[in-house]
Design a protein around this nucleic acid. Structure first.
Length: 502
DNA sequence: TGAAATGTTGGGGCG
DNA sequence: ACGCCCCAACATTTC
C-alpha cells in the first residue's frame, strides 16, 4: 500500500489541465529534467517551461540507483540512441551528464540562475520517493518545482472503484473506470524553444561518456532492425495505422507476421506518448474505434496503463507475489535449466526460437513471450522473478510496470491473472500460431529442413527422417529438457499444494 | 489471452 | 429393418 502523504506531495492536480499557467513571472529560466519522456512533441513539462521563458534541457544518468533499478543492457543501447536523437532535436544543446540528480539539478540552478525545475512523472515507487525528496530539497533551496503527467492516459490515482479502492481486474478498470473517466489530454503542439545556455555541446562525447553501448558488439542485428528515434516512432505508428491495425486482432498472434505495432520501446522511453497514439488512432477512424482490430489495439494500450496502475497502487509488484498465496510456492532451483531457457536451448522449438529472437534482436513477439513465460514458470517451475530479470536485461522495451505485471500474470500470481492451471502446451501453441514453422525456422536454422508436421516436435520424428533433414538430436539441436506431459502434471501438483495450505 | 479428459451425438459399416 | 460398434466432431467439465 502507498503512503498517502507521499502521493499528495507527488501529485498536483491543478496542473493536469491543458491550459495551465506554470508560474506567475513573465520570464524565467526553467530546467527541464528529461527522464522517460525523450521527445519534443506532446511533452507537458517541456511545453509548460517553454511557455514561460528560457529552458535548460538536461538528462541525468542516475548513478545512485540500486542495482535492480538500473537499466538492462538492451535498454541502455536504446537509451544511448534516444539521447543522441533528442539532443539533435534540441540543437545539440541537451546537457547530458551522470551522477546524483539532486546535486546536479541544484548546481545547474545556481550556475545558470534557473529558478524553476520541471519534469514528467515516473511511477515506480523508488522514483516517486526520489523525486519527492528532490522536489522538497529544491523547494527548500528556493527553487520552484512542478511535475506533470507525460506518460499515462489516466493518472492511477484518478481511477478508483466506487468504494475508493483501486481496481484489481483489468476489464472493469478499463471499460468502467477509464472509458467513463475524463478523456485523456489531447496531444500538445511542439513548443518553440529558447534554449540556454547558448552553446552547443559535443553531444556524442557527452553521451558516449555514459558508456551505454555494449563493449562487445552484440548489437549488430539490433542496429539493423530498429531506428530508435522519435521520428521513427511516428513513422512506425502511421504505418501501423494505415496498414495493420484493422487486421490487428487476427494477426497479432502470429509471430512470423509483423501484425503488432512494435511501438513498445518508443513508448517506454517516451519517444512517443500514449496520448499521441490514442488520438492518432481515433482521428484515423473519425472517432469510431469500435471495429475489432482497432478496439483490440486500444485495449492493449490500456493494458500498459493497467500495468502502471498496478505498480503505482501496489509498489512491490516487481518483487512480491501480488497473490500472497504464492509465497509458499515450491519453486525449483536449476541453474542449468534456467541457462538452457535463456540461451534458447530447451529443445522445444517455439520456446527456443522466442528466446533466441530476444537475445539476438532485443525483442520478442508478444504471443511468444507468453509461451516462453509459461514454459519457464510452469514446465520448469522456475520463479517468475528470474524470468523477469532476464527480460529486464534483454528487452529493448524493458519496462518495470509492464514487465512485472506481465510476469505475474503469466505465473498466475498476479492481479486478474491467468489461472495457474492454464498451462500452455508449446507444441499446440506452435502449431496454432506458427503453423508452417516460419518463425521457428528463422531463429532455429538448424531445424529449417524439418517438415511442418514435426517442426514443433522434432523428437517425435523417426530417426531416419531426422537424418535426412541433417539433424541429430542431442548434437545439432537439444533433446527436450523436460517431458511436456509430465512437467505439466508436476506443475498442477505443485499448485495443488497451495490450495491445501490456503 | 488453455489443454486434456470426459461426455454426447450422429452417421456409417456391418452382421 | 435393426442393433451394435466405431469414431469423428463437437460440447462440457476439470485441472
Amino acid at each position: 500500500m502507498f503512503d498517502i502523504s507521499l502521493v499528495n506531495l507527488f501529485v498536483d492536480k491543478s496542473c493536469t489541465n491543458v491550459n495551465f499557467t506554470l508560474f506567475e513571472r513573465a520570464m524565467t529560466t526553467t530546467i527541464v529534467w528529461f527522464r522517460q519522456d525523450l521527445r519534443i512533441d506532446d511533452n507537458p513539462a517541456l511545453y509548460a517551461a517553454a511557455r514561460e521563458g528560457d529552458i535548460l534541457p538536461v538528462y541525468i544518468y542516475d548513478t545512485t540507483l540500486e542495482k535492480q533499478h538500473e537499466p538492462g543492457g538492451a535498454s541502455k543501447w536504446w537509451l544511448h540512441h534516444a539521447l543522441a536523437d533528442l539532443s539533435s532535436q534540441l540543437d545539440n544543446r541537451l546537457f547530458v551528464t551522470a551522477g546524483n540528480p539532486f546535486d546536479i539539478l541544484k548546481n545547474l540552478c545556481e550556475e545558470n540562475n534557473a529558478s524553476h525545475v520541471v519534469w514528467n512523472r515516473m511511477y515506480e515507487h523508488w522514483a516517486i520517493q526520489r523525486d519527492s525528496n528532490i522536489k522538497q530539497a529544491l523547494t527548500e533551496n528556493g527553487i520552484r518545482v512542478k511535475s506533470f503527467n507525460g506518460s499515462l492516459l489516466w493518472e492511477p490515482m484518478d481511477i478508483l472503484k466506487k468504494d475508493g479502492t483501486p481496481y484489481k481486474v483489468y476489464t472493469p478498470y478499463y471499460r468502467k473506470g477509464c472509458l467513463n473517466a475524463e478523456h485523456p489530454r489531447l496531444p500538445l503542439a511542439s513548443p518553440s524553444l529558447n534554449i540556454l545556455p547558448n552553446i552547443k555541446f559535443d553531444a556524442i562525447t557527452q553521451i558516449n561518456s555514459l558508456k551505454l553501448l555494449p563493449t562487445i558488439p552484440w548489437d549488430t542485428e539490433i542496429n539493423r532492425q530498429w531506428r530508435p528515434t522519435s521520428t521513427s516512432a511516428k513513422d512506425v505508428l502511421s504505418h501501423f495505422i494505415n496498414n495493420a491495425i484493422e487486421s490487428y486482432s487476427d494477426k497479432r498472434n502470429l509471430p512470423s507476421v509483423k501484425g503488432t505495432s512494435r511501438l513498445s520501446p518508443f513508448l517506454h522511453f517516451g519517444q512517443i506518448s500514449p496520448n499521441q497514439i490514442w488520438y492518432a488512432v481515433h482521428d484515423a477512424f473519425d472517432g469510431d474505434v469500435s471495429s475489432k482490430g482497432v478496439d483490440t489495439y486500444l485495449s492493449e494500450i490500456a493494458w500498459r496503463e493497467f500495468s502502471y496502475y498496478l505498480l503505482f497502487h501496489f509498489d512491490d509488484l516487481g518483487v512480491k507475489n501480488f497473490n500472497p498465496k504464492f509465497d509458499a510456492f515450491p519453486w525449483r532451483e536449476s541453474q542449468a535449466e534456467l541457462t538452457a531457457w535463456q540461451k534458447g536451448q530447451t529443445g522445444i522449438p517455439i520456446v527456443d526460437a522466442g528466446m533466441r529472437e530476444l537475445y539476438q534482436t532485443g525483442y520478442m513477439h508478444n504471443r511468444v513471450r507468453m509461451i516462453v513465460g509459461s514454459f519457464l514458470v510452469k514446465n520448469l517451475l522456475i520463479d517468475w522473478r528470474l524470468g523477469e530479470r532476464w527480460f529486464w536485461d534483454c528487452l529493448l522495451d524493458a519496462d518495470s510496470a509492464s514487465n512485472a505485471a506481465s510476469w505475474q500474470w503469466v505465473a498466475g500470481s498476479g492481479a486478474d491473472a491467468s489461472p495457474y492451471f492454464r498451462i500452455f502446451n508449446p507444441i499446440l501453441q506452435g502449431e496454432k500460431f506458427d503453423k508452417h514453422g516460419t518463425y521457428v525456422r528463422k531463429y532455429c536454422p538448424e531445424l529449417a529442413q524439418i517438415p511442418d508436421k514435426y517442426i514443433h516436435k522434432p523428437w517425435e520424428m523417426p530417426n531416419l527422417l531426422l537424418n535426412e533433414c541433417g539433424v541429430k538430436l542431442g548434437k545439432d539441436y537439444p533433446e527436450p529438457i523436460v517431458d511436456l506431459k509430465r512437467s505439466r502434471q508436476r506443475a498442477l501438483d505443485a499448485f495443488a499444494t497451495l490450495k491445501e495450505t490456503a
